[in-house]
């Protein structure tokens, strides 16, 4: 490889054309690579190599005690014919959609918290951020207790106003919504933190100018805050979607074993777990894992394409 690290390091300084022609001549030699080597090796050994192996495993029948037999595309054929796979995709999309609804709310909350002169601003920030640092399983177990159909606090509160609450976590359809609501609630912390940082970068003068022009607070929010915040919103959207496609622990801990709605509620990663670790079918599970990778990749590419329409980098 003759690529100079300088081209990677300073993408803004010179135009791409000039750098490309000058690159090989002004190469930095081998030693910058020595600095990246530890990381590079780590990425190869712990990411790239396992991914390549997973590709291979997805075409094999994986013996319980090691040993793979090549079976061609049989795992993949089975995957695309399995109704559970599509069910898991649909469930994951529903979950992601509900969690994404949290982003507009987070934008609103972040701009409230970042209003100049707000008292206890750090307290609010801590309160919203706490769910993010708490263990997902611990959170899920507390919500599980609150959602309990017979003895949970939510149904108790509903009973006070004469409503007979449902079994939130064991009724088909409702269970996924309940888990999604917890994901929705839990996504605020990080989003508010990132959006808050984005808000701080918006020049105060713009608000002052808008105010002089007679803009109402709502108008200032819509015409100044939202467009200038869009890069942060875009970033939050990307990580939220990737995170919600990996839904597993909340589902696992909140629904629990012996839950009648689990088959209809499982996410993609749960579907992977069940086949790989419960049914011991690791070759098939490898195919599922790759499918998840591809799906997340496609969704992310689509997002990058769409961002040109709404993300404002100026």
């Amino acid at each position: 490889m003759t690529l100079s690290l300088r081209t990677v390091r300073t993408p803004v300084v010179s135009t791409p054309d000039r750098r490309r022609s000058a690159g090989p001549a002004r190469t930095d030699g081998w030693w910058p690579w020595a600095f990246v080597a530890p990381l590079f090796l780590g990425v190869c050994v712990f990411y790239l190599w396992p991914i390549l192996q997973t590709v291979y495993f997805s075409f094999t029948k994986f013996g319980v005690f090691g040993g793979q037999t090549w079976i061609g595309a049989a795992n993949w054929a089975r995957l695309v014919q399995d109704p559970d796979f599509y069910r898991a995709i649909l469930n994951t999309l529903i979950y992601s959609a509900i969690v994404l609804l949290g982003i507009p709310v987070a934008v609103f909350l972040a701009s409230l918290i970042n209003r100049p002169g707000l008292r206890f601003a750090s307290l609010y920030r801590v309160l919203f951020f706490l769910p993010y640092i708490a263990m997902p399983v611990a959170i899920s177990l507390v919500w599980r207790m609150m959602f309990n159909g017979d003895f949970g606090i939510i149904n108790y509160a509903l009973s006070l106003v004469g409503i007979d609450g449902p079994h939130w976590l064991s009724t088909p359809g409702l269970a996924l919504i309940s888990v999604s609501l917890v994901g929705f609630w839990g996504s605020f912390g990080l989003a508010i933190l990132i959006l808050g940082a984005g808000l701080k970068n918006i020049p105060v003068e713009l608000y002052e100018a808008a105010e002089l022009d007679g803009a109402t607070p709502w108008r200032r929010f819509r015409s100044v805050t939202v467009p200038l915040l869009s890069p942060s919103v875009f970033f939050v959207t990307i990580i939220t979607i990737i995170g919600s496609f990996q839904l597993f622990d909340a589902l696992y801990a909140m629904l629990g074993p012996n839950n009648p709605v689990m088959p209809a509620t499982q996410s993609l990663v749960f579907y992977f777990y069940e086949n790989g670790f419960i049914r011991n079918d690791k070759g098939f599970a490898a195919a599922i894992a790759l499918a998840i990778l591809v799906i997340i990749g496609i969704v992310t590419v689509i997002q990058f394409r769409l961002q040109k329409r709404w993300v404002n980098y100026d």
């Binding site: 959602f147 309990n148 159909g149 017979d150 003895f151 949970g152 079994h167 976590l169 064991s170 009724t171 629904l255 629990g256 012996n258 839950n259 009648p260």
Partner: peptide, 10 residues
């Protein structure tokens, strides 16, 4: 007996 939903929750 409590039903399956109830036994799943508790």
């Amino acid at each position: 007996s409590p039903n399956i939903q109830q036994l799943s929750d508790t």
